[in-house]
Amino acid sequence: MPLGRGGRGGGVIACGQNVLDIEGLVLRRGRRLLARRVDLRVDRGAFAYIVGPNGSGKSTLLRVLAGFGRPEEGVIRWSGRTIGEWGGAYRGEVAFLGHLEGIKSMLTPEENLAYRRLLVGPTGWRVPTPSPFFDVSALPDLPCQRLSAGQRRRVSLACLEYSAAPLWLLDEPLTALDHDGIAALGGLLARHLTAGGTAVVASHQPLPPSLVPATVLELGTKR
């Protein structure tokens, strides 16, 4: 597994396909300063693991990476271009799993998958290697509001499984998953990385041992 480097390499930026490079990012939530300078580089086929206490800016970092709002200071490069240079095309590059499931409570699991497919379009969708845990047809054919939290999580992870986006941003992906679910998510992420994808995972739960992050970024520590 390629090793992530700290970032600042004397101003020379050599960015290949599916490489995420963050330089001097200042994270703010409202007026509150969360992190003064975030430098992070994640290579193709690798993932960064963001840790830190509650409120340290893990989610804010992932939301900025997803393109929700522009950073005040600092540069985010994806495959060599900044988010601004990517423009609207950046949206097709990212799969985002936030605290909220992003699934509709009125639709059944299979309908949710179809709805997500309509949203991301045919180019953002691929048929994955089947993994039994995220097989939505095994879930009850009921509107998702009547499923358990863990079952809803499985639906939203199934949407991720079908995503062809190269950059995955996962915010606390292990929430509400049982032991098998955590292992299945590990497999899902490993397949994504093997296929040349990149990921940034924020979690305060330990990851399955099979997953070794290339970089661990600790937020919220006094520097």
Binding site: F68, G92, L100, G102, L119, T123
Partner: peptide
């Protein structure tokens, strides 16, 4: 409101469609 509360607004914003 529902789209905002259940997170599908995030997915709508990430959709490559306009």
């Amino acid at each position: 409101r529902d789209d905002h509360d259940d997170g599908s607004l995030e997915q709508m914003l990430l959709s490559p469609r306009p």
